[in-house]
C-alpha cells in the first residue's frame, strides 16, 4: 500500500481534552479498517471451507459442545487480531491510500458475507 498525504489536515481540534498532535496519520485507522475486512473474509472462507470439506469441518471442532462453529469463529477472530496487530505496527505513524484500503476492506467484507450465505455456498460447490 503506497503512502500518501493524509486527508486529515493540520490544526484539528482536541475535543477529548487530551493533548494530541495536530495531524494524526491515517495509518492506524486504515490498519483497523483493512484488518476488519481481512477478519470478515477469513470468517467467510473458514465457514465455506468447513461446509465444503468434512476433514476441515472436523478440524474446526475445537469444542464439541459448539462444534465446528467454535473453530471457524475463533480462528477468524485470531486472523483478524493478528492482521490488525501486524498492519498497525507496519502503518504506525504513516498515512496510506485510504481509497485503496476502503475498497479492499469492503470487498473482503462483502465476499465474507457471501461465503457464509448457504445458497451461495451450495452454488460454489455445485450442489
Amino acid at each position: 500500500m503506497s503512502t500518501q498525504q493524509s486527508d486529515i489536515p493540520a490544526g484539528a481540534g482536541d475535543a477529548f481534552g487530551t493533548a494530541q498532535p495536530d495531524v494524526l496519520p491515517n495509518g492506524p485507522g486504515a490498519a483497523a479498517i483493512l484488518a476488519a475486512g481481512i477478519g470478515s473474509l477469513a470468517l467467510g472462507i473458514f465457514a465455506f471451507a468447513g461446509d465444503a470439506s468434512p476433514a476441515i469441518l472436523r478440524a474446526f471442532n475445537f469444542w464439541s459442545a459448539t462444534g465446528p462453529l467454535s473453530g471457524v469463529t475463533s480462528t477468524a477472530v485470531f486472523v483478524w487480531l493478528v492482521a490488525w496487530y501486524w498492519l498497525a505496527r507496519s502503518w504506525a505513524g504513516r498515512s496510506v491510500s485510504l481509497v485503496l484500503v476502503n475498497v479492499a476492506a469492503f470487498a473482503m467484507l462483502i465476499a465474507g458475507l457471501l461465503l457464509t450465505f448457504p445458497p451461495f455456498m451450495d452454488l460454489l460447490q455445485g450442489k
Binding site: S6, D7, I8, P9, A12, G13, D14, A15, Q20, L24, N26, G29, I33, L98, V99, V101, N102
Partner: peptide
C-alpha cells in the same frame, strides 16, 4: 473530532 476531516475514514 479529526474524523470530521477525513471523508474516507
Amino acid at each position: 473530532p479529526q474524523l470530521a476531516r477525513s471523508r474516507q475514514l
